[in-house]
């Protein structure tokens, strides 16, 4: 082919690889932090079905379409589904995990401000997927 050196390409590939290593290491570190559930987190059982969410607190209280939690407490969601695959998502708190029938998936968070947030389904689940929503109420701790 043509007469030219290859050093520029090697430098370029080196830079690309270094960047990729950086991305991988950073992502690995953050994932490690957010995956570890605190030991004292309170369990909330989340069940998705076509096309609504239901919740069960540790003390047995059940809620449908809305979820009340207290500020400053850690919550561990045990997410499952009764029919097809859904995806449990509180976008404002970056909480997301699939609700898979026959499996229990885990995700956790600590709400830190009083307020209302949207809960939605992010995995296509049929006719009313677009409207499979619920509300999260974060309340002052008692």
């Amino acid at each position: 082919m043509s007469e030219h050196g290859n050093w520029a390409e090697w430098v370029y590939i080196g830079v690309v690889c270094a960047l990729l290593v950086w991305v991988g290491a950073e992502a690995w570190n953050v994932e490690r932090l957010v995956e570890h559930v605190p030991a004292d987190a309170e369990v909330i059982k989340v069940t998705g079905q076509q096309w609504f969410w239901s919740f069960e607190h540790e003390d047995g209280t059940k809620e449908i379409g809305e979820l009340h939690v207290e500020k400053g407490k850690a919550y561990k969601f045990e997410v499952t589904s009764k029919d097809v695959i859904h995806s449990f998502n509180i976008h404002d708190y970056v909480v997301l995990i699939d609700a898979v029938p026959g499996r229990i998936n885990i995700v956790w968070f600590v709400p830190d401000e009083v307020g209302e947030h949207e809960i939605q389904c992010r995995e296509y689940c049929g006719l009313l997927h677009y409207n499979m929503r619920a509300k999260l109420y974060v309340e002052e701790s008692t």
């Binding site: 991988g24 992502a27 953050v30 970056v94």
Partner: peptide
Amino acid sequence: SAMPLDFI
């Protein structure tokens, strides 16, 4: 591909 960004 960064795992935690998948939550977003």
